[in-house]
Nucleic acid binder design. Structure first.
Lengths: 369, 369
DNA sequence: ATCCCATCCGTAAACGTTTACAGACATGGT
DNA sequence: ACCATGTCTGTAAACGTTTACGGATGGGAT
């Protein structure tokens, strides 16, 4: 393993001191002649600066980490896809931590900041415990949290707004004449689960619809749980005419069961998903889904972090991303969905933004499993 | 920003030298009393070792990078999901590079190894140019390539075996009585595109079926391309009774068009995808798909790299991962698929392995877009 | 008492950079 | 001729670790 050339090798070869080499390589003013000697020596030797040594001296690594539960989850995936190019453009490399939503792991990551292997961290925990808050307060590097965190935690925070999101969906269903709108949620002890449960009650009330326990099911955030929940729902409340699902995976499970039960979607039962992952466009019929802006949240987080790295003293900021409704066949039917399909973003067919209230009352910064 | 404590701070506080501190923290034999003093000082100060300084001294960073075209592609995603835990268990952090299949970017990553910010690299390029080979030869750290690379390139190499994979699919279709089997491919100047084109011809020959140009379409690896290609196919060869797609996205496009054209899947036309991404299970009808083992390739790559990091002198190895066929509704129908669904892996319904030849004649180590 | 050896620990150098400081030299003004 | 000024470059310290080396200490054998 031929040891690579260092600044010393170059200095000797060019007959100058290492200080001069460093100056030339960093573009500091230097005599023309010296510049030429150094550059050609560097060229000949194929010199590449050692980033570790540089980091040690400069006290910055040009690395940033993103910690989330599971990169396989399309929500986090959408975030990574936005975060990466933003950081890259600013000269940062991206490190990935998959924590499996394990609290101990997440805390480890936070403590690990003391090792100074990254300049900052973006993190999106599923649950936020007191320990999280303490670790955040003690963090040795700037942290941006995606997902709501109490005011005064002292970190930059990017939030979703499930309240408005759920309302968009229920307004849409109500507008289509649906009145028996069920809700299939994930665990209510998670940040998104809790926010979405509350949002459902509120939206019903706003529409003047009664809250009917028979129409509510709670499982986990996966497809199989969605299927089981909807099966139970059909057994108990056969007259359901719409199902609001707390994420797209649950909605996929719903589609499976409805198909098997011979219910047509959307004629008999309309289905709405949440997170507007690309699974929504793959499903059949394509899923109408509430976008909580995973991509936009990712981008916002990256930008907040970069800004904070420039200016460490700035007051912590809270950014809330507005939800949108991507309308597809699972609520309006294949025909109608097609007429609208030309516009819109990469995944969405027709998009409907938040009403008009600015949506900044948001509560849920989420990323459901 | 209170500067964190260093080994020096601890040494002063404990009244010992920095050498002793280091020894204690690294578990080298030391007098009981000293150990206690150092540990309690470290504890009180909340000391965390600086990984950058450590890396500089030790000449290793405990970081590994994975470079691929686009983390949004389910194939690479599957790889990351396997790579991450393997590396993590061995104490390495994972860095991500999304190169957009840009050759210059990929070469930059390879050259960047000289900066020594990682100990090794796993890379999965879509196209392998001469420049790639040169850069690989000159790489300043161990590299594992996922995707075929010529013998003698001197790097560890993980390959898929599309030849066997395509044969599995065509055997399956032939066994179902299909004789007019079309092929929709991606660009043939990519590693996977080229391999799959050749594999299709071979498999046809082995089955005694004629090669009919009318049954072959080439587009890009995306859903829209698949849709366009299949539309053209239907216009030209109305009697097609099966479509082999070069990846799952293309297959999704095929399903769209077939549905619109009123062709039943699989009764009228059977469809097979490739890569067996989780999209296959989401589609309707669920897609039969050739798994080229993205996950297993990811794992193999990570293991090869770890092994190489232990033993830098070892001869380069080639690992070929066996393809499998995940049989689902798009070829055998919903009923039949269900009876088989209980077994199998996380995504696959029924799986069929390679015939019996060991499959190590493989050529294509791929990751289609 | 003397010597030897083992045990423990401190000094200092090294990893590869950046940068404050000061020395060397040339230029121009008086 | 001298001094002030400016430009360029070299010396050395620093970033926070690890580790080779040797010095100090104490115990046991003679």
């Amino acid at each position: 393993m031929a040891e690579g050339p260092t600044i010393n090798t170059i200095a000797r070869r060019a007959g100058v001191s290492i200080a001069s080499v460093s100056r030339v390589l960093n573009g500091l003013p230097t005599r023309e002649e010296t510049v030429r000697r150094v550059l050609s020596a560097a060229e000949e030797l194929g010199y590449v600066p050692n980033s570790v040594a540089r980091s040690l001296k400069n006290r910055r690594t040009n690395q940033v980490a993103f910690a989330m539960a599971d990169i396989g989850n399309p929500v986090y995936l959408a975030m990574v896809r936005e975060i990466q190019p933003v950081l890259r453009a600013a000269g940062y490399r991206l490190l990935l931590h998959s924590t499996d939503a394990d609290v101990a792991d997440e805390l480890d990551v936070l403590r690990g900041l003391g090792e100074r292997y990254v300049d900052g961290l973006i993190m999106s925990p599923l649950r936020v415990t007191d320990e999280h808050l303490r670790a955040l307060a003690a963090a040795r590097a700037p942290v941006v949290v995606i997902g709501s965190v109490p005011e005064g935690t002292g970190v930059d925070n990017v939030r979703a707004d499930s309240r408005t999101g759920v309302r968009l969906a229920l307004d849409h269903l109500h507008g289509l004449g649906r009145r028996r709108i069920a809700f299939v949620n994930g665990p209510t002890d998670t940040v998104p689960g809790a926010a979405r449960a509350a949002a459902y009650r509120e939206a019903l009330a706003a529409l003047g619809l009664p809250y009917d326990e028979d129409l509510v099911e709670v499982g986990d955030f996966y497809r199989a749980d969605g299927a089981a929940a909807v099966q139970a729902l059909l057994d108990r409340a056969a007259d359901v005419d719409a199902i609001m699902c707390a994420n797209d995976l649950i909605a996929l499970g719903a589609l499976d069961v409805l198909r098997r039960a011979g219910r047509r979607v959307p004629e008999d039962v309309a289905v709405v998903g949440m997170d507007d992952t690309y699974l929504a466009a793959v499903a059949w019929p394509a899923l109408t889904s509430v976008s909580l802006g995973s991509a936009r949240r990712g981008r916002a987080a990256a930008e907040l972090l970069l800004d904070r790295l420039e200016n460490g003293q700035r007051e912590p900021r809270v950014v809330t991303v507005e939800p949108r409704l991507a309308v597809r066949a699972s609520t309006v039917g294949v025909r109608a969905a097609e007429t609208v399909e030309s516009g819109g973003s990469s995944w969405a067919a027709g998009e409907i933004g938040a009403a008009g209230d600015g949506g900044s009352t948001g509560d849920g910064g989420e990323g459901s499993r």
